[in-house]
Nucleic acid binder design. Sequence first.
DNA 1: CAACATTTATAAGAGAGGAACACAAACCGG
DNA 2: CCGGTTTGTGTTCCTCTCTTATAAATGTTG
Lengths: 409, 409
Amino acid sequence: MRLEAIGQRSETVRRSNLSAIVRELHDGGPASRSELVARTGLTRSAIRGLIGELAAADLVIEERAEPQGTPGRPSPVVRIDPDGAVVLALEIAVDSLAAAIVGLGGEVFERVRVDRPAGHTGVEGIAADLADLAAALRSRRPAGETPVGVGVAIVGVVRRSDGVVSLAPNLGWRDVPLGDALAAALRVDAPISVANDADLGALVEFRRGAAIGGGDVLFVSGEYGVGGGIIIDGRPLTGVAGYGGEVGHMPVNPIGATCRCGSVGCWETEVGEAALLRMAGRPPGGGRPEVEALVRDAEAGVPAALTALEHGGRWLGIGLASLVNIFNPRLIVLGGIFGRILPLVGPTIEHELDRRALAAPRRLVRVVPAVLGEDAPLLGAAELAFEPLLADPAGWLVPRRGQRVLASA
Amino acid sequence: MRLEAIGQRSETVRRSNLSAIVRELHDGGPASRSELVARTGLTRSAIRGLIGELAAADLVIEERAEPQGTPGRPSPVVRIDPDGAVVLALEIAVDSLAAAIVGLGGEVFERVRVDRPAGHTGVEGIAADLADLAAALRSRRPAGETPVGVGVAIVGVVRRSDGVVSLAPNLGWRDVPLGDALAAALRVDAPISVANDADLGALVEFRRGAAIGGGDVLFVSGEYGVGGGIIIDGRPLTGVAGYGGEVGHMPVNPIGATCRCGSVGCWETEVGEAALLRMAGRPPGGGRPEVEALVRDAEAGVPAALTALEHGGRWLGIGLASLVNIFNPRLIVLGGIFGRILPLVGPTIEHELDRRALAAPRRLVRVVPAVLGEDAPLLGAAELAFEPLLADPAGWLVPRRGQRVLASA
DNA sequence: CAACATTTATAAGAGAGGAACACAAACCGG
DNA sequence: CCGGTTTGTGTTCCTCTCTTATAAATGTTG
């Protein structure tokens, strides 16, 4: 069936087991050798050999565990090597650009976010700005440190295979080869992966945020538009070309307003920032600060603000009901303004879910706010950039740090 | 991360490779040893050993290939053993019951469908009826043949883990333990798997129908209600408890009619059988024959019929646009009445998709009719029942046929 | 009928994890 | 303070599975 139909062999097993260990440490933090034995189901001998290989590749280090008051010989603690692999994470947001250098294991070593001048939307210009940010960050890191990958989050619809942004209304982009532009500007060897910001927000909430271990998770983020990221059985839903999860453009209201995507009655025309502000009689272009003011008014009991949020909450619930019936998720994580207003509109959302979602799936789902803030997409970009290494750690026997690079070259 | 975190070992490789071969033959039909070598990427020696094991378990047979006019020593053809494993497939449809005995590889050996008396909805009664059908079929098969699994398709929402039907409006069921009832009535040892009929229709269209090799496929079937089955990257989307894919209950029209599920404006209230008939001024309870008459009228140019289908097609397109934006599928397969009316409403659907779906995903999707007819869910139930065997053929070294059973017991 | 191409068959080799046993390092109790 | 208990490491040998190498088999082609 599969085109690259795959027979398994010994090396497959090794790769898979190495990957399992690195993933475990990357996602869950340090673990003793014994814990790894328990979690993988492998024998001590096997774990020992695998860890030895990972340590030789400078991906992990072993340390003596401090005494824990339990009998028995202490098991060495294995952790991601803090001087090991790093990636470069980049984000192109509605009105800012950001960059970070993130280590395997998720530690953020350097991070910067700058405003993006309004109207500054050319792809070369943005790529150059990001390259400058990246250079500044890298200058603060040890000489010779080279990212093993570059991840990019962008407010737009992305074709993952080649990093082409097929649609980014906020930037006025259509079929823009962002991946190529960044490759030229950054001048790094590492592979560059581009993805939608909400997809990456979902990924990082799943790995390190509100949805850890959820398995089936729906992430919906309210920004200027509505972004969605879907995790099914632990795997991100990307669709056939990486366009999956654009829940903001579900048609929910056949008699609704025209959306900037050209369609009519999209979900985001009812629950996006602009819709909330419009309902409250505020300037729809006010952006996040204006929304923040609106939410504060609502918290203070201002009627117009409450009505607007009530309206938004109702449509939010309607759309979520749709998604619940389709996906039967265990968890819905609300990010951006949706996470912000959840305390106020939670009951409204729950009411719509009770009314519109099938009872059985409904009973299983919880709605929670995202816990990672503004930088979620940036951190998600880092996760994306680590993916090849996580999938095949042995293929990344990182030739790093001074002499080693020369020796192996 | 995964709870049953899995270290791989040698046996894993063996199981996976055996599974790959059996799947290949089950899905794609007979293949020469060389073809299997090419498709799996394994060596001839490995394939030889694997096939030998499968042949010893009576799962496959090897035959001399007839000469094909090419030089070189001919490669034996491997095929599923026609006297090998079979499953029992059952279906509980709106107004009929069906049963079949299906061999590995998909050959239907016996099949029967009977009307279900209206009002006959008790689970014990239906289970008994199905058991009678099954017994009749089995009496026509060789003595000693025992199904390795039982698959059940039902018009309802099913919790897969235990075969409880949580909701089946057509039967008036709510939280009915169908799996247990069938286990008691059938008196077979084989495991019983229950699933939604549309999910199974999607599965079999993907394996043997209109969506072969599609990878990401959306199956939407118009019956009394609207059923949906979703295949993502070759795997059926089941949701956290098997409730996934209930696209019929997406709220699409906030000012629409009340649905029998209790919600308002569900997709199926706009495009289901009843909606089409209502729009055409026909008795909404007329069922499939009445719909058939409606379609014939439309084909003959009767205005009221054309208007009704136009309405249905428009809403069909609206809902599909939603799903296209969410899933970015490569293919949409329309079954039931939707497949029937596709030639008439195709342009309307395409128009709504053009208008409402994001351009990039839209460009990639094709809409086609299902090719497997009324029995699709039944055949899907067979596929479901074969799943454990396909996943681990070695675990099913079928002790079958006379002496062998005694010898191994 | 000989040359060639392709595949099968068989045996030896290599990679990876499993099992068993001796030893090590912690706690516990007298 | 010292032996007992518990838990875990290190090491060696074993088993499983696929790969590699070589000879034999079975077709087509000229």
